[in-house]
Amino acid sequence: MVFSSNPLALSVPDPAFESWLREKGYLEILDQRSSDLHRISTAAAGDGAAATSVSASSGGSDNSNAATHIPTFLPYGAFVSCFSYLKILISLLTLNPFAKLTNDDFAGNTPSWTKAFIGSFGSYSFPTSLDQARLRTHENVKRFARNYASLFILFLACSLYQMPIALVGLLLSLALWDGFKYCGDHWKLDQRPVLRQTLVRVAQCATAVILFFSNVQVALLYALGVSYAVLVLHASFRKLTPAKQPSQSERSRRIPKK
């Protein structure tokens, strides 16, 4: 977004405008701006390539050459577009979605599952660049941290339901540590640090054996893999939206006029 120079307004450079939007928290405008710039650049590149193809084909003696050269651009453009999308999808594996996540992000209320988390069909779009995917991922993970945590618990419960032995092993491990806590309070192990440390090591070994033979780690890895895939895809494809709807006065002074 470039502001035109006129006697009543100043021309704001793009980097300064983006820094202002980040400082003020208007990240949804940056997201929409990236999509608009990519659409404009793609349309301009397509028009330029089509014009070049037409001009090259018009150098021939008949119109049959033009009909031959023009369609060759279309498969090439589709191939380049698919390759760029595939590159962005592969690059999502290199992102760290928890880079900006803090403990305070889990302290607030859970966003609405229908309006905020899922949204409408128009709330999703393919990221046009890795920078846009990174911006969406970091901000959506912070905003929907409690939703993603709930999904992980749901996937873990489903995997444990499909693996009853793993569920029994997990319950036995929890019961073991609960019994250890009860015995520690009853026998006053805090006054016997050597005995308490020895029993802790024994409980840890027993827990490891129970979890290993009951295949709890398989259920945990399945839940982690599915929830991580859902998190990355949802966070990178979900458009950034304002945390709250601004009032009419806030919308009027939200962005300087072009």
Rank of each mutant, 00 (worst) to 15 (best):
M1E: 04
V2H: 07
F3E: 11
S4D: 12
S5D: 13
S5M: 14
A9H: 11
D14E: 10
E18N: 06
S19A: 08
R22E: 14
E23V: 14
Y26N: 11
L27P: 00
L27G: 01
R33Y: 06
S35I: 02
L37K: 02
S41D: 08
G46R: 03
G46M: 11
A50H: 00
V54P: 02
A67P: 10
A67S: 10
H69D: 13
F73V: 05
L74C: 10
P75R: 12
P75M: 10
A78R: 11
F79D: 10
Y85I: 13
K87E: 10
I88L: 13
I90R: 11
I90C: 06
L93Q: 11
N96H: 07
K100W: 09
D104M: 07
F106R: 11
T110D: 12
W113N: 05
W113G: 10
W113K: 05
T114I: 15
K115S: 15
G119F: 02
G119T: 04
S123Q: 08
S125T: 14
P127T: 02
T128N: 04
S129Q: 06
S129G: 12
D131A: 12
Q132R: 05
Q132P: 05
R136H: 02
E139P: 03
R143N: 00
F144Y: 05
A145Q: 02
N147E: 05
Y148N: 07
Y148E: 02
F152P: 01
F155P: 01
S159R: 04
G169D: 03
L171N: 09
L171H: 09
D178S: 14
C183S: 10
C183Q: 08
K188P: 00
L189M: 13
R192E: 13
R192W: 14
T198R: 13
L199P: 01
L199Q: 06
V202T: 12
V209K: 04
I210N: 03
L211N: 08
Q217D: 04
Q217C: 01
Y222T: 15
Y222Q: 10
A223D: 04
V226R: 11
S227G: 02
A229I: 15
V232C: 01
V232M: 09
S236P: 03
F237E: 04
R238Y: 11
K244C: 06
S247T: 15
R254G: 01
K258L: 06
